[in-house]
């Protein structure tokens, strides 16, 4: 039962990764007892399960994911939201208003209009139906301030880091609130524009260099260096 690639080695679609009694994980497929890669990415394996961490992929909705989307259409009973996925999401009016509503009395554009950005959770989705959003949790709903940036959705786990190590460093060092949408959209709200820009710089660096090891250290160094260059950012440690 040979494996033809080492861990974290680059594979392209069609590469034969392993032969024998293995389980095909993410971005791989099994045919005639052979595991092949289905996307460009880095090989990972755990026991019998072989998967590929994709370097390029698009977002596929999953129930429970937090996403950031743009309202693209106001309908009679709700909104259509672009969540950067192959499928457009629906947000029902009753979900937002928390009470029964009558289309003839309530004007939905007063609550959310085309172009508004929202933080939401995916509450239902399967192959036959478009994803449905909910905004019941605290911190969800319309976004009123902050910076929005987009990265490849596959890189979101890298921005979070092991047990949230990466994201907590960025939050701590820049003093920004960061909401990560699983769909690759990130909301950053800080006290000043400089803080927000610093956080964006760090996240951009993560996206570009996520497949090279020692990332957390380089990010910490980069933020420290940038801070020193600017002569201290507004949220210097209070000692």
């Amino acid at each position: 039962m040979p494996i033809f690639f080492e861990k974290r080695q680059l594979v392209t679609p069609g590469d034969l990764i392993a032969e024998g009694d293995y389980i095909a994980g993410e971005n791989t497929y099994k045919e005639n007892n052979r595991i092949y890669a289905a996307r460009i990415g880095l090989v990972e394996y755990e026991d019998k399960k072989i998967s590929v961490v994709a370097l390029r992929a698009f977002y596929i909705p999953k129930v429970g994911d937090t996403v950031i989307g743009t309202v693209v259409e106001v309908g009679f009973g709700g909104w259509v939201v672009d969540i950067n996925a192959p499928y457009q999401a629906v947000l029902r009016a009753s979900e937002v208003l928390n009470r029964p509503f009558k289309p003839q009395r309530n004007d939905l554009t007063e609550v959310l209009d085309v172009g508004d950005l929202i933080v939401a959770k995916i509450i239902s989705y399967d192959r036959t139906q478009n994803p449905q959003l909910g905004v019941s949790e605290p911190g969800m709903g319309k976004i009123t301030r902050g910076q929005i940036m987009r990265i490849t959705p596959t890189k979101i786990p890298r921005v979070i880091g092991k047990k949230g190590s990466m994201i907590s460093i960025i939050k701590q060092e820049t003093g920004c609130q960061i909401v990560l949408g699983q769909n690759g959209v990130i909301l950053i709200t800080g006290k000043t524009l400089e803080d927000e820009e610093l956080a964006m710089m760090a996240i951009n660096k993560i996206e570009q260099e996520s497949h090279i090891s020692g990332l957390t250290d380089r990010i910490t160094q980069m933020i420290k260096r940038e801070k020193a260059k600017r002569g201290g950012v507004s949220n210097e440690p209070k000692n």
Binding site: P13, R39, I40, A54, R56, F58, T154
Partner: peptide, 11 residues
């Protein structure tokens, strides 16, 4: 297609 991240059996 591969660059767009579309899952493929082979190039």
């Amino acid at each position: 297609l591969a660059d767009a991240g579309i899952p493929m059996r082979d190039l």
